[in-house]
Amino acid sequence: MHIRPRSHDDLQQLVEVLWRTHDQDGYPAHWPNDPASWLTPPGHLAAWTARTSDAGVVGHVGLAAPDPVAPPLVTRLVVHPDHRGRGIADALLVTAEAAAGTAAAVPTLRLDVTEETPGAWRLYERRGWRLTHRSPADWTKPDGTVPTMRWYEKHLR
Rank of each mutant, 00 (worst) to 15 (best):
M1W: 12
H2V: 10
I3T: 12
P5V: 11
H8T: 13
Q12Y: 07
Q13E: 04
L14S: 03
L14T: 00
L18G: 00
L18M: 07
L18C: 01
W19Q: 04
W19G: 08
R20G: 10
D23H: 14
D23A: 13
G26E: 03
P28M: 10
H30V: 08
H30M: 07
W31M: 08
P32N: 11
P32W: 10
P32A: 07
D34G: 00
P35W: 02
S37A: 13
S37T: 12
S37R: 10
W38C: 00
L39R: 01
P41R: 02
P41M: 05
P41G: 00
P42A: 09
P42W: 03
G43N: 07
L45G: 05
A46E: 11
A47C: 06
A47T: 01
A50L: 10
R51Y: 08
R51C: 13
T52N: 12
A55T: 08
V57P: 02
V57M: 03
V58D: 05
V58W: 01
G59N: 06
A65L: 13
P66G: 04
P68L: 03
P68E: 07
L73D: 05
L73W: 09
L73V: 06
R76F: 03
V78R: 05
V79N: 05
G87K: 13
I88K: 03
L92W: 01
A96G: 10
A96V: 06
A99N: 12
A105D: 15
V106F: 12
P107H: 01
R110F: 12
R110D: 09
R110V: 00
R110I: 09
L111W: 02
D112L: 04
V113Y: 07
T114D: 14
E115D: 15
T117D: 12
G119M: 07
W121S: 14
L123I: 10
Y124S: 10
G128H: 09
W129K: 03
W129P: 04
L131N: 05
T132R: 14
T132E: 15
R134E: 15
P136S: 08
A137S: 02
W139Y: 15
K141L: 15
P142F: 14
T145Q: 04
V146F: 10
P147G: 06
P147F: 04
R150C: 08
Y152E: 06
K154N: 14
